[in-house]
């Protein structure tokens, strides 16, 4: 099928499927868009094959979802950057690494071993893989690292969020409509607010500078009040260093922010910055009373700092860079 419409490819990394749902979730605006574009590759909706992408000389817009975890993901990522005029990194995984990025520091062989040996794997799946291999089908091997698209190639538009909020997807669709008229967005456009989530939080305390975290509770230990700042209640919320623009969905559902929108502008390492701000506000009024031992005891209530601070951004962390530098030597 050939037409003069601009070509759109929606390409998958190691995606969970949530990004696709969020894209379809916008409803009518998407239908409008798809009548104006010729969708040439979209695994969930079309029977597009890799060689159809390879044959094309030029794609106009490519949307990439998920992190780069396998050799095939890597190939696709480089392919779309080579051929597409406008590359969109869609979802937290493509921008920062996301949940699959938590495996960034674990050896690929260990990951595969765990996958095969734990109960979550369907019994007999090994047989299926072997019978597939007999027919000439191969499962692509894992890459050495788990990387977000934004580190491997330079995307033109970035849409963070796990999954991206409806408002931001609508903005993206507007951009794609403008692209039809020949208007190209500035390179590296981030579809989120540059300021932090706290700045527009409905629970924002009157004076942020006097905020004191009175204790540390894990989510199952406390019942959060609906109208009070999470940090003031001793529940760790990543709002202070996370970008706004998600419509504070979690806060509205009485859950603390987990940081899926990534760091605010001019911050490049979520964990170290949050650690810093946490240390300033935690028990700021009782430091001398408790002394070092008392403080240490309370700080030990943070059981898993890595998982808490870097839930969505581990592959872009400076500490990961440090460790990988060490491993490679």
């Amino acid at each position: 099928m050939s037409s003069n419409k601009p070509k759109l490819a929606i390409v998958y990394g190691s995606v969970c499927g949530g990004c696709d749902v969020s894209l379809v979730n916008v409803g009518e605006p998407l239908a409008d868009l798809l009548t104006n574009y010729d969708v040439i590759y979209w695994s969930i909706a079309l029977d597009g094959k890799l060689h159809t992408l390879e044959k094309l000389e030029r794609i106009d817009v490519a949307i990439y979802m998920g992190p780069i975890r396998t050799e095939l993901n890597m190939k696709l990522a480089k392919l779309i950057r080579e051929k597409a005029d406008l590359v969109v990194a869609y979802g937290t995984c493509a921008v920062y690494g996301g949940i699959p990025g938590l495996g960034a520091l674990i050896k690929p062989s260990t990951l595969v071993e765990t996958m095969k040996s734990t109960v979550t794997t369907t019994p007999g799946s090994e047989k299926v893989v072997k019978s597939m291999e007999k027919e000439g089908l191969k499962i692509p091997p894992l890459t050495n690292q788990c990387l977000p698209l934004s580190v491997v190639v330079e995307p033109d538009v970035l849409v963070p969020g796990c999954p991206p909020a409806v408002e931001n997807v609508e903005k993206l669709i507007d951009i794609l409509k403008k692209y039809l008229r020949g208007e190209k967005p500035v390179k590296g456009l981030m579809l989120a607010e540059p300021r932090s989530l706290c700045e527009e939080c409905p629970r924002r305390p009157k004076d942020m500078s006097k905020l004191v975290i009175p204790n540390i509770y894990r989510l199952h230990e406390a019942v959060p009040k609906e109208d009070k700042c999470f940090l003031e209640q001793g529940i760790l919320c990543l709002g202070p260093i996370t970008r706004a623009g998600c419509g504070h969905r979690c806060i509205k559902a009485n859950m603390p922010c987990a940081g899926c929108m990534g760091p605010v502008q001019r911050v490049d390492d979520v964990g170290l910055k949050f650690l810093s701000s946490l240390a300033s506000a935690l028990l700021a009024d009782k430091e001398k009373e408790l002394g070092e031992e008392g403080l240490a005891k309370l700080l030990d209530k943070i059981v898993d700092p890595q998982g808490l601070f870097y839930r969505y951004t581990l592959p872009t962390s400076y500490l990961t860079k440090l460790v990988l530098k060490r491993l490679r030597k």
């Binding site: 946490l278 700021a284 430091e287 700080l299 943070i302 890595q306 500490l319 460790v323």
Partner: peptide, 23 residues
């Protein structure tokens, strides 16, 4: 007044974080 306590808290969590990263 309390800068040294801030340093103490920061280093305490940072050490824990480094341990998780294998440093």
């Amino acid at each position: 007044i309390s800068g040294n306590f801030k340093a103490f808290k920061r280093i305490h969590i940072l050490k824990k974080l480094l341990k998780q990263f294998g440093i």
